[in-house]
């Protein structure tokens, strides 16, 4: 999946996460994480985001994450939404999503 523009999803409400993604100038993956549960879930969240990027074959991405205590499924949904928006893809690619 190629990121052709900046994609943003989510909010800063409690239990939500705001994720902004765009292509990386050095063609690599970089995750900037800010989380209210960083000490206890920081590594877990990074790993989860890396896994999703890998599965969706995103090789160049600057991912900015501002987490307000979102659950895994919320982080996943917001990242997927942001990636689809950044890639400009309208229809769902289920082979990547499942």
């Amino acid at each position: 999946m190629n990121l052709i523009r900046t994609g943003k999803a989510g909010t800063l409400e409690s239990s939500d996460v705001m994720i902004t993604v765009k292509g990386h100038s050095e063609n690599r993956v970089e995750i900037k994480l800010k989380s209210i549960v960083e000490k206890r879930f920081g590594r877990h969240i990074r790993r989860q985001i890396e896994d999703i990027l890998e599965r969706m074959e995103v090789n160049s991405a600057l991912v900015d994450v501002d987490d307000r205590g979102a659950l895994d499924c919320v982080i996943q949904a917001r990242l997927e939404t942001a990636l689809y928006r950044a890639a400009g893809i309208q229809s769902l690619r289920w082979e990547e999503i499942q």
Binding site: V37, K39, L71
Partner: peptide, 10 residues
Amino acid sequence: KVTGRPEPVQ
């Protein structure tokens, strides 16, 4: 089950 298992505080 909902939150996942947190890492222990250091």
